[in-house]
C-alpha cells in the first residue's frame, strides 16, 4: 500500500492540478494577509473558505482522479497486490497531496507574515487541521461515489450533489426543522444533526474557538455542557475522526466486491 501511496502521490505532485490548488491557496493566503493586514479577519475568512471550498475541491478532485486513473488501477489490479491496498493507496495519495497543497499554500504566507509569533497560531493550526480532515473525508466520499458509478458524468453529478447537500441544503433543512419545531426542546436534536454532517461538525469545532462568546449565550443545558466545556471539543474532534474512517472502511468493502 505504501508503494501505491508513494506513486499516486508522486503522480499527483507532478500533475498540474496540485500546483493550481497550491497556487490558489498561496494566492489566497497572500491576499488575505498582505492586502488586509489583519490576522484575525484573515482567519475568519479562511474558515469560510476551508469549510466550503476544501470539501468541494476534495470531492471533485477525488472523483476526477479515480476516473482518470481507471486504467492504471486495472494495471495495478493485475499485479500481485491486495485490492484494498491499491484503493487505499490511491486515496491516501490524493488526500495527502491535497492536504499538502493546503498546508503549504496557506502555511507559507502565514509563516512569512509572522504567524508563529502571534497568538493566532492556535486558531490557524486548528483551521489547517480541520481542512486536512475535511480533505480526507470528502476525498474518501468521492472515491466511494466514483467506485459505485461506472458512468463518469453520473459520478461527477453525485459528487457535486453530495457537496451541495452537505454544504448548503443540509443546513437549510436543519434551519427549517428548528423553526418549524421551535416550541420543542431542540438542543439534543441540533447536536445530533450537527454530528451527521462533517461540514457542520467542522464548523462547530471552529466556532468553539472563534465564537465561543456567542455560543455561550445559549440557554439550553445540553448545549451548555457541550459547548461550555472541553467535552464538546473532544467529542466533535472524535466524531470528525470517525468521519474520516467511515469512507475508508466503506471504500475497502466496496473495492472487494467491485468488478473491473
Amino acid at each position: 500500500m505504501l508503494k501505491i501511496l508513494k506513486y499516486s502521490f508522486y503522480d499527483l505532485m507532478r500533475s498540474r492540478w496540485s500546483y493550481v490548488y497550491f497556487l490558489f491557496y498561496l494566492l489566497l493566503g497572500m491576499v488575505l494577509l498582505f492586502l488586509n493586514n489583519d490576522l484575525s479577519k484573515a482567519v475568519i475568512t479562511l474558515m469560510n473558505i476551508i469549510i466550503i471550498l476544501v470539501p468541494l475541491i476534495a470531492t471533485i478532485f477525488g472523483v476526477m482522479y479515480f476516473y482518470n486513473s481507471r486504467e492504471f488501477t486495472e494495471l495495478l489490479l493485475a499485479q500481485p497486490l491486495k485490492r484494498s491496498s491499491i484503493f487505499l493507496g490511491q486515496y491516501l495519495g490524493v488526500a495527502g497531496s491535497l492536504t499538502m497543497s493546503l498546508v503549504l499554500g496557506l502555511g507559507l504566507p502565514f509563516a512569512l507574515y509572522g504567524l508563529f509569533q502571534s497568538g493566532a497560531i492556535l486558531n490557524f493550526s486548528l483551521l489547517i487541521l480541520i481542512g486536512g480532515l475535511l480533505t480526507f473525508i470528502f476525498a474518501g466520499l468521492a472515491f466511494n461515489i466514483a467506485i459505485s458509478n461506472e458512468n463518469r458524468i453520473k459520478g461527477f453529478g453525485y459528487a457535486v450533489l453530495l457537496w451541495l447537500f452537505m454544504a448548503v441544503i443540509y443546513d437549510g433543512l436543519f434551519l427549517l426543522t428548528l423553526i418549524v419545531f421551535e416550541e420543542y426542546p431542540l438542543d439534543t436534536f441540533s447536536l445530533i444533526a450537527t454530528v451527521f454532517n462533517p461540514i457542520d461538525l467542522s464548523r462547530i469545532l471552529i466556532l468553539l474557538k472563534l465564537d465561543i462568546s456567542a455560543l455561550l449565550g445559549y440557554t439550553g443545558a445540553v448545549f451548555k455542557d457541550f459547548l461550555g466545556t472541553r467535552l464538546g471539543f473532544i467529542i466533535s474532534g472524535a466524531v470528525l475522526l470517525l468521519w474520516t474512517l467511515l469512507p475508508v472502511w466503506s471504500l475497502s468493502a466496496k473495492a472487494k466486491r467491485k468488478d473491473f
Binding site: 469549510i51 434551519l175 441540533s190 447536536l191 464548523r203 455560543l215 449565550g217
Partner: peptide, 12 residues
C-alpha cells in the same frame, strides 16, 4: 429560535 445559533457562519 435560539437553537439556530448553531448554524452560525454556515454557507446557507
Amino acid at each position: 429560535t435560539p437553537e439556530t445559533l448553531i448554524l452560525l457562519r454556515s454557507l446557507f
